[in-house]
Amino acid sequence: MAEFIIKRVLQALLVLLVMTVLVFFGVNVIGNPVYIFASSECDQACLTKIIADLGLDRPVWEQYLVFLGNLLQGDLGNSFTHGIPALSLIFERLPATLELAFAALVLALVIGLPLGMRAGLKPEAFSSRCIMAFSMIGFSLPVFWIGLIMILVFSVQLGWMPSIGRGDTVEVFGTEFSFLTLNGLHHLAMPAFTLSLIMMAMVIRLTRAGMREVLFADYIKFARANGIRERRILSAHVMKNILIPIVTVLGMEFGGVIAFAVVVESIFSWPGVGKMLIDAIGVLDRPLIVAYLIFVVFMFVILNLLVDILYSILDPRVRLGDSPT
């Protein structure tokens, strides 16, 4: 076990290192770093100074080591537009994104599980077909288009929902949350639902597939033979068994949700890190862009690592390298 974890951690570190190389060279070789770190109204003298400051006269590998050194100290430079360290700006915006992502996760489970169970119990029924069609739509339609139509219908035409912003927030442990106020919930509903659709479609499919499998298992037959009520069979015996793959997949998909949050946040003007990235790209606030990329890669590698380790605890075959292919 310890050996597996150490191996995976080393692997994750290697991936991180490779990604910093990619981002560094992407920014320094493909883009011009002078313009990345200089504001737009910089004259020739100031440009020369920046070139010297950045150490661009030194060889590339030396520049990379400096970049890496700064990175290890958590120094990713200051944002042009906000004038504060890029990393602290990210942490300032992160709670809004996480709140949105978790709300989407909860919605996906609360709506997706019952729908998936229904579709699994009576696969031939009309309602089940509608549910499966809905899940296919959730999978294949672009997220931004769904968000757009929601705004058009619920905000512009019906006027029921606010289309932008986060609404009132309440401070808990020094962080602002909007799901604790009625106005905040009102603002959260549409973006969270839009973001949850892909996950919801996935939950519906997994639940349905799980139901089809588990319902015919011997222990369900025995539970029925024991005279246990159908409701209890579903809620205790079936649920427990279909939840395992669902939780695993959702854990692995969470990184994707953070990525899709970029789309949802920019549609609904939700003040999270994704919106911040798009704004930063719009005004060419490159230190902020680099910081976001590094941060997201870092978060994702850590998330993958955790899922892998958890998985190896749940399923020993993984760590013994006994893969079927």
Binding site: V23, G26, E253, G255, I258, A259, I281, L293, F300
Partner: peptide
Amino acid sequence: FPTILVALILLVIL
């Protein structure tokens, strides 16, 4: 890595 994330990173750089 999620597809959209990779594409996003690449296009931000390129």
